[in-house]
Every structure is written in C-alpha cells, then in structure tokens.
C-alpha cells in the first residue's frame, strides 16, 4: 500500500531559549521552550537538503515536491539545487513547489501520494521554513527554523495512507504577504483567526471521517501545525478531538512555528511515537483558507526517534547573537 517509507528531520544547531527570551524581553513566549535559529549560511533550501540527506539514498526517485513559504527567491524554479544535492533528476524527475501558505507541506504530500500511485516510483516530500528577519517582532518571536523530509513509496513501511479530504474557503486578512512586500501581515482579530482555523480544519476532517466511517476516538493522534497551543487546542476541540490526541504530537515548544514544515514535523513526531496499527490523522491548514486532511496507519517501521535526534545537541545563543544571526542588528 502506498505510504511513507522513511522520514527525517533537520534543525539548525543554534537555539534561543525561553529563559533567554524572558531575561531580555521581560516575559517568555507562551508555550515556547526553545527554538532553532538558522545560521547565516542556511536558508530554506539548505535546511531542506539537510533533512533530505537524513533519508537513505534512493537515487530512483520519480518525483519530488518542495514546500516552503520562505524560499530564497519569489520567482524561479528552486527545487533543482535539492535535486542536485540528492543526485536525482537525471531521468524524468517530476517536481512541484508549494509556497503560498503553511498548508504547503500537506499540499506537497498529497501531490506525492498521487504521483507515486500513478507512476509506481518513489517520491520525496521536503518541507522547510526559516524565520524571516522581516515582519513584525511579535510574530517573528515565535518563528523557528527546520525541515522535514518524507519518502513516499508504494510500500509504506512506516505508515500506510488511507484516504484524504480537502477544504477551501475565502477568509481574508489572515497571515498574508501582499505582492511586492516581504513582511507578514494579519488583521490580528483573535476570535476571527480562531474561527477561520476551526472551520477549515473541520471542513477537511469531517468529510474524511464520514467517508472512512470513523469517529475521532478511532485515532491515536491528530496532527496539526506548529501553531500556538491556544489555537491548537481550539482546532482539535472544534472537530471532536482531545488535547491528548494533539498535544503529544505538537513540536512547537521545541521548534517554534515551522510554517510549511510544521504539520509534517508534527507528523514525524507522531511516527516517532506511534505503535504499529495506530491511526494518525494529519491536517495541514493554510490561512486564507485551505485545509488538507490525510489519514494514515502506522506500520512496523515507525518509531525511529527522528525528531528527538534532530533536536539533540543544540547550542544556546544569547539574544544579541540571535538578533545578529537573523540580520536584525
């Protein structure tokens, strides 16, 4: 059965801790213990290459999809450097790039599931985001940096894919960057933000559960994005899931907001903890709004500790170093 055959993560070594944030800015950031900070020579593409490199070399990729809202260029094909790094692309590599919202990760995964089913060849999904030095300070404070890679194959030894459902709506004013600008904007109306998120998640999850004839209690994990805990809990509650199903597979406290890589990093966390046979419901949400819901069953090869291993060995940096590394001073 088509599914996930391997996965791996990468996080930059430098870490800004809650204690340092509190020391300098006076208060910690809610739910955030520590977040990775990219070095000057890292960007979304190098993060993506590092995550992809953790997956055992399989030169016979038929397709690859890249998801990121912080690629170095706004216009041009950029997945080529990744294909080069993976020594792939020589013989008909189908590629897509997904760049407009945090949903990009699940968009890329959905495309690869289709591609692998159609071609019979393996496909790779790589999602990466890196905190951009532009944008308002409040928002920038929660932005982390990291990448996750998933190998999609006809034999999903890590997890098998069951079905998906998708939702799209028009919710203006949330988490957007106008053409020609670089800073993230938001109307900053918290009730509206939470309501739009909840509606989109429900809009994808409910039809999927209905089609599979399941209820939330059939799932061990509900995997959402790396959003603040308040929003996470509201989104889970809104479609009938509990904190116990979503909080254990929520990397945010140690990664910050990973944008397009958030939901797939949380999926990696779920695969790290799942027992064979556990059901996992993955939901990618992008402000604007759109949501993808994908249902998986964990296989024998899950439980590899990829997230913990990638997060191990971080190097704390002080606030001044953090501001210098992110180009703000």
């Amino acid at each position: 059965m088509v599914g996930l055959a391997a996965y791996g993560c990468y996080f930059p070594a430098a870490r800004l801790t809650a204690a340092e944030t509190e020391r300098v800015w006076g208060s910690p950031i809610a739910d955030l213990d520590s977040k990775p900070v990219a070095a000057a020579d890292e960007d979304a593409l190098t993060l993506a290459a590092a995550a992809a490199a953790t997956i055992d070399g399989d030169a016979a990729l038929g397709s690859m999809s890249l998801a990121s809202t912080t690629l170095p260029y706004r216009r041009r094909v950029q997945i080529g450097v990744l294909a080069r790094a993976l020594r792939s692309g020589g013989d008909s590599l189908f590629t897509t790039e997904h760049t407009t919202s945090a949903r990009a990760g699940t968009e890329a995964l959905a495309v690869q599931l289709l591609a692998v089913r159609a071609s019979g060849r393996s496909g790779m999904v790589v999602a990466a985001d890196v905190a951009s030095p532009t944008g308002d300070a409040h928002r920038a404070a929660v932005l982390g940096a990291g990448a996750v890679a998933l190998l999609v194959a006809e034999d999903g030894a890590v997890a098998t894919f069951e079905a998906s459902a998708h939702h799209v709506a028009e919710d203006p004013g949330l988490d957007f960057v106008p053409a020609g600008e670089s800073a993230l904007q938001d109307v900053q109306v918290s009730g509206y933000t939470q309501e739009a998120l909840g509606a989109a998640v429900r809009g994808a999850v409910e039809p999927l559960l209905h089609r599979l004839g399941r209820t939330p209690s059939d799932y061990r994990f509900l995997v959402l994005g790396t959003m603040p805990g308040r929003l996470l809990d509201a989104a889970a509650r809104g479609c009938g899931f509990t904190r116990e199903q979503s909080r254990p597979v929520w990397a945010f406290p140690s990664t910050g907001d990973l944008g397009a890589a958030g939901a797939l990093t949380n999926l990696a966390l779920a695969l790290d903890t799942a027992e064979p046979g556990d059901r996992i419901l993955l939901v990618g949400y992008g402000a604007g709004s759109g949501a993808d819901a994908l249902s998986f069953t964990a296989g024998e090869s899950a439980g590899r500790g990829a997230v913990a291993r990638a997060l191990a060995g971080g190097r704390p940096v002080d606030a001044l170093t953090y501001l210098r590394m992110t180009g703000r001073i």
Partner: peptide
C-alpha cells in the same frame, strides 16, 4: 553538507561545507 557560500549579483551560490560526522547512518 550543502550551505550557502555567498550571494553575488542577486544569485545565491550554494556549495559543500563540512559538519562534524557523528556516525549517523550515511547514504551509500
């Protein structure tokens, strides 16, 4: 590992650098 070398003419130059090798599993 692949990193940015530098940017010139608006073009990022990528290339290899070296990170400590902890003995994790390597591509063949």
């Amino acid at each position: 590992v692949v990193r940015r070398l530098y940017e010139e003419e608006g073009v990022v130059r990528y290339g290899f650098k070296f990170a400590p090798h902890m003995g994790e599993q390597l591509p063949a």
